[in-house]
Design a protein around this nucleic acid. Structure first.
Lengths: 235, 235
DNA sequence: GTGGCATTGTGACGCTCGTCAAAGACAAGG
DNA sequence: CCTTGTCTTTGACGAGCGTCACAATGCCAC
């Protein structure tokens, strides 16, 4: 039989390996991981899992952008979270009741690493530190949700939209002679969900941000004044 | 030496024992639990832990009512959660970075069972199912926070206040010739925090609920029409 | 009782946002 | 080309809410 280090950890080549939830898996768990590990590429619009469906595994996003939404009975939906590289999704239903309460849909071409549910359960059972990391992810999500609640009560819609755009710019923006520029990965309706207002209001908030000179919009193209360059307007 | 069952589980007499996070503790962990287990009674206004303080343990509420708040830099605060009997608090910082992000303050006379942090860590290490239950609690909190976000976007302030009052009535109300009556454990400011509006708006929402005939208020005394008795007004 | 102090209710005002409606922009498909 | 559907913007209107101000109430210590 080969020594244990002959079966490398499936995430060992991943840039997010150090903070991966699977990183603490013991030697025995690595074999399970390798068996239950699959990769999948998603195109924009592809659904990784549907709301109400049964959990089939724990997903780790190795690249791209995935939106987690809930749908209300009146047909409207709420965008609850954006997942980027290194984020783990599906752990809520994995740790909880086994049923997804959100829909995961790709907004950009994305790649997810999946550990099938049964194998994930075995790994968690054999390597409790993996469970501890999953719990840590749950706490992070809880913090984010509470931060959103607090921000809703304490800051104006315009300020929250500006913050959201700044965060998006950090992830999707590119430098362009003094400005930051990005192609918005979100529709106006999605922006509205994240800020907590109606679509039309987002249009008006965008207009007011442009009036302030901090942003310039052309459909989904956005220019933003570099942080620190507060004296020049855009456009 | 006595057999293992000579040291009973410290929660074994608790009405919430079956769902307690400590219930799955193994025989060895029970000894640790008994050593690190303390009870504490809180009076209204007493602070169990302060925002920004270091986690000193995991707290299980065996009775009463505790409010978890965050404070913003402008001096205002947000009431994030109400904890009742059986709820576990302090696990966020225990599972996370070790620093409380909320303040826990008793609203009613309360009793908390505490497992000191060091001992809790040893128990979790020795009995992974305990960690799984803590993770489950984190997921529950996450669900509650997301539910609140979704409700904020999808329902009117008046409807959310009515829902909140109904939930409070279920816990604090007593039957009174066809009505439910309770003494509100929350100030108007706290109600405002939970609904997500200003204090004055709560006063006006209350007036509108009274105009509808569904509630009657006298300071902190509240009467509510019994669910199903929709034909009679109150007052 | 009296004097603070916190809590609560009320009024006025202005702004923001939700809602409804309509029109333009754009891509996909026939 | 036109049609269709989706996304986005704009306008008009009204209701609701935040803000400020002030009065009323209740509570507690003295």
């Amino acid at each position: 039989m080969k020594p244990a280090d002959a079966t490398p950890h499936p995430c060992s080549q991943c840039p997010m390996y150090r903070t991966s939830v699977w990183e603490p898996a013991g030697a025995g768990s690595v074999a399970i991981l390798n068996r239950g590990f699959t990769r999948r590429d998603l195109q924009p619009g592809d659904v990784l899992f549907a709301e109400g469906s049964e959990n089939r595994g724990v997903y780790c996003l190795s690249g791209g952008l995935i939106a987690l939404r809930t749908h209300r009975d009146d047909g409207t939906s709420s965008l609850l979270r954006l997942a980027y590289r290194g984020d783990v999704i599906g752990f809520r239903s994995f740790l909880g009741d086994g049923v997804h309460r959100t829909e995961a849909r790709a907004l950009l071409p994305s790649r997810v690493c999946t550990v099938a549910r049964h194998d994930a359960e075995r790994v968690v059972h054999a390597s409790p530190p993996v469970l501890a990391r999953l719990a840590g992810r749950a706490v992070d999500e809880l913090d984010a949700a509470r931060e959103r609640i607090v921000a809703t009560m304490g800051r104006s819609n315009k300020a929250r939209l500006a913050t959201l755009l700044t965060e998006l710019m950090e992830r999707h923006g590119t430098q362009e002679d003094g400005y930051l520029r990005m192609h918005l990965p979100l529709s106006r309706a999605d922006l509205a969900d994240l800020v907590g207002v109606q679509r039309e209001t987002v249009s008006r908030l965008i207009r007011r941000l442009e009036d302030d000179g901090s942003f310039h919009f052309a459909c989904r193209e956005v220019w933003m004044r570099h942080p620190g360059m507060r004296n020049r307007a855009i456009g």
